[in-house]
Amino acid sequence: MTVPLSILDLAPLVDGGDARDALRRTLDLARSAEEFGYHRFWVAEHHLTPGVASSQPAVLLGAIASVTDRIRLGSGALQTGFLTPLAALEQFGLLDALYPGRFDLGLGRSAQRRKSDLSSSQPPPEVDAHVVDGLLIPKHYNYQVLLKSGSAQLWFKLLKQPGAEPLDLDTVVEDIEILRAGPYTDAEGNSARAVPGEGADLELWILGSSGGESAQVAGARGLPFAANYHVAPAKVLEAVEAYRAAFKPSSLLKEPHVMVSADVLVADDDETAVELALPYALWVRSVRQGGAVPWPTLEQARAHKWTEEDRRLVKDRVDTQFVGSPETVTEKLETLRRVTGADELLITTMAHDHHDRVRSYELLAKHWPPSC
């Protein structure tokens, strides 16, 4: 079974570059992705991160739409804990008004309060790294230390209005759907309309990294779901299983629809790809120490003195990055598709040299069989 390939981009800065350079590279990559035949081009939302320029997905997607013609564009994911449902719909409604029928509104649960009654079961116990039918499921990395750090508290202070209480994800989705159907009427009969936004031709997606609230809300509302193997590989099977277990048919979907992400780097041969991927571990280390740095050079990666603590910090991500020739990576992606039952795959690739990054996507697209 062959499935469509899509791209998730962070507009990464590289060592020696700046945000302007990163954004120009993203625009060029989007044009190339359309030429290569990728199905979707999504951009992430990251804030206060020195190595990533994709901080405002709607703004960046508008620029991408102006230089492309057909490829679907979307957010992976809009961090709904930092804005209202109305703001999210207005942003993407405006994009749809300018470039009709091309946008995916991908939502994430970042900074939202948890809705504890979605699941009555206790979270599954932690397990060591293991292989499921050829797919590595590493030991889970615990982000709580980073989230409780002083840096994280400063980020939340800058990103949220004082005293603001984020809505839970289910309420966010419900409000967006009501506003899109329009008008929004309260119990007293007052009404409001989202312009632009009402009637917008958008695909609504939910992204998640575990079997928790995001997966369950997506399933219960009959929405497509994107699971993060590249961010949280240890939880990917839990996430897709929870989504499918919760799924109820909707006017949008009669059956579950899953997209699964993967970190990928392709070159003409395995040896070259492994060399180009050397900075990846150093970059992941920076992410888990408080903020992604600009993508390191090969020289910086070779010179870094790794400690055992460093290696443990990045092991799950490094071990699950798919690196190699087109044949090698295609085989690994097919394993990911088969084990997760993915209907689509979402690829993210970074390299210091822009040519190497574009070339990676080109080689993969040429080798990946066309979907039916």
Results as ranks from 00 to 15, higher is better:
L237G: 10
E238D: 15
E238T: 07
A239S: 15
V240L: 06
E241F: 02
E241I: 01
R244W: 03
R244N: 10
A245F: 04
A245S: 12
A245H: 09
A246S: 10
A246D: 04
F247R: 04
F247S: 07
S250R: 11
S251I: 00
L252W: 01
L253T: 05
K254T: 10
E255G: 02
P256F: 06
P256Q: 03
P256M: 05
H257F: 10
V258Y: 06
V258A: 08
V260M: 11
V260S: 11
S261M: 13
S261H: 13
A262W: 08
A262N: 09
A262L: 08
D263P: 00
D263I: 00
V264G: 09
L265T: 12
V266G: 12
A267S: 10
A267Q: 03
D269G: 04
D269A: 06
V274C: 01
V274H: 02
E275H: 12
L276F: 00
L276K: 07
A277S: 10
Y280H: 07
Y280I: 06
L282K: 15
W283E: 10
W283S: 13
W283N: 12
V287S: 05
R288T: 13
R288I: 10
Q289R: 15
G291S: 08
A292M: 14
A292R: 12
A292Y: 07
V293L: 11
W295V: 11
P296W: 02
T297L: 04
L298M: 09
E299S: 00
E299H: 00
E299N: 02
Q300V: 01
Q300E: 04
Q300K: 01
A301L: 06
A303Y: 03
A303F: 01
A303L: 02
H304P: 00
T307H: 01
E308Y: 01
E309K: 14
E309Y: 06
D310I: 01
D310W: 00
D310S: 03
R311P: 00
R312H: 06
R312P: 02
L313K: 04
L313C: 03
V314A: 01
K315C: 05
D316G: 07
R317Q: 13
V318I: 15
V318W: 13
D319T: 14
Q321L: 12
Q321E: 13
Q321R: 14
F322R: 14
F322S: 13
V323P: 02
S325Q: 13
S325L: 12
S325R: 10
P326C: 09
P326W: 11
V329M: 12
V329P: 11
V329K: 06
E331K: 15
K332I: 04
L333Q: 02
E334C: 06
L336V: 04
L336A: 07
L336N: 09
